[in-house]
Amino acid sequence: MLNSLGLPRDPSETRVVVAMSGGVDSSVVAALLKREGYDVLGITLQLYDHGAAAHRKGACCAGQDIHDARRVAEAIGIPHYVLDYEARFRAAVIDRFTQSYLDGETPIPCVECNRSIKFRDLLETARELGADVLATGHYVASRGLPDGRRTLHRAADPGRDQSYFLYATTPEQLNLLRFPLGELPKDDTRALAREFGLTVAEKADSQDICFVTQGRYSDVIERLKPGAVQGGDIVHLDGRVLGQHNGIIHYTVGQRKGLGVSTGEPLYVIRLEAKAARVVVGPREALATRMIRITDVNWLGDVPVESLGNAGLEVAVRVRSTREPRPAILRHDGTAATVELLSAEDGVSPGQACVIYESDLPRARVLGGGTIARTSAEAAPAAA
């Protein structure tokens, strides 16, 4: 008989490390598992020192969050450890984020944090502590298969689903990860926090990237890479130079407001050319994307992605975290993966993730994904 975490032993004989961020979600996970009788340990990662980097004290991943996690652990009666992962986080996440923006991309540091810090380094720490599984407060679901493998699925609450940020989780990691909130609506999570009497029950959700304290990516980049940001031309697709900019890091593909130029027509950022330090703008229809090449593919499907060939596989893909999955064809020529969108999407930006699902249904399985490397408009019809 399996316990609630899918393991064949009594909860009291199952050690669980819970990644406690100091927020309501991970706190409820720790309290739930403790109530079910599991041997629970809480770990909080100190990832970023806002006092030194943002010239103010406290905020996410440091200060108050660590204090909140410690208070919750004391209240529910579990051991709690704080690990200093600042150096690892800086190298794996912040430095990559900074360079990606300088390269004209729009990166997602949360994906890299999950891949390189939480589900690699922290998982290894959990093993060293004798844990059977690592549990987190992410809104995503995993299910066990008869052969012992586990699959990743969209959460029950579509408004909270975080599968877009977890596509890079490997099959080996999935076998050791558990997501107890994947079947719960957020309102139920807060109700449980009140039931447990947790001090974080009404704590606001984190909205921004943890190391971007004021919502301005450019400030962080200019602080970390002084002198690296260069100005250049704002150029229309037709070749006209419309004005100048003070750094491509201030722009993103699909942006309309704040371009600093006016021609009497609505203009959007179509692409960023880092080497030439150019921001290329044009009409909205120029944003339409039908073909996407993805790199650094992580695959969770049942057959090798390399075997798909030109015939491809009918899937659904999400090209932004705020968009619903859309029908597409995934192909692989043996060296690279491409996605053909069945209907064009606007504002698809290099550096973002293209996450692949089995279908566009609410609880669909996650098949994997990759980083968007190149995009193109609909291919021209073949010659007769």
Rank of each mutant, 00 (worst) to 15 (best):
L5V: 10
L7I: 04
P8Q: 11
D10N: 12
S12F: 09
V16W: 07
M20I: 08
S21V: 06
G22N: 00
G22L: 04
G23V: 02
D25P: 00
K34H: 11
R35G: 00
E36H: 08
G37Q: 11
L41E: 09
I43F: 09
I43M: 11
A54P: 00
K57V: 13
C60W: 07
C60Q: 13
Q64T: 13
D65V: 09
V72Q: 04
A75T: 13
A75E: 12
D84S: 05
E86W: 05
F89W: 01
S100H: 07
D103L: 10
G104F: 03
E105C: 11
P107A: 04
I108W: 00
P109R: 05
C110P: 01
E112L: 14
R120K: 15
E124A: 14
E128M: 12
T136K: 00
H138C: 01
R143K: 14
L145F: 03
P146D: 15
H153T: 04
G159F: 02
R160G: 07
D161H: 08
D161S: 07
Q162M: 14
Y164K: 04
Y164S: 03
Y164P: 00
A168T: 06
A168H: 10
T169L: 09
T169M: 05
E172M: 04
Q173Y: 08
Q173V: 11
L174D: 00
R178W: 04
P185E: 11
A191C: 00
E195P: 04
G197T: 06
G197C: 05
D205Y: 10
I209T: 12
V212R: 00
T213R: 13
Q214L: 12
Q214R: 15
Y217E: 09
D219H: 14
V220A: 05
I221P: 03
E222T: 11
R223W: 12
H236A: 14
L237F: 07
D238A: 10
D238V: 07
G243L: 07
G247V: 09
G247K: 06
I249Y: 01
H250L: 11
T252I: 14
Q255E: 08
V261W: 03
S262Y: 15
T263N: 02
T263V: 13
T263F: 05
L267I: 07
L272D: 05
A274N: 02
A276C: 02
A276I: 03
V279T: 08
G282W: 05
R284E: 15
A288W: 04
R290V: 12
R290W: 14
R293S: 10
L300R: 02
E306G: 07
S307K: 09
L308N: 00
G309K: 11
V315F: 01
V315G: 02
V317M: 08
V319P: 03
V319C: 09
P325Q: 12
R326I: 14
R326M: 12
A328I: 06
A336L: 09
V339F: 06
S343M: 12
S343Y: 10
A344M: 06
G347Q: 09
V355K: 00
E358Q: 15
D360K: 11
L361C: 06
P362A: 05
R363A: 12
A364R: 10
L367T: 03
G368L: 01
T375D: 08
A380V: 12
A380M: 13
A380P: 03
P381V: 10
A384M: 11
A384N: 13
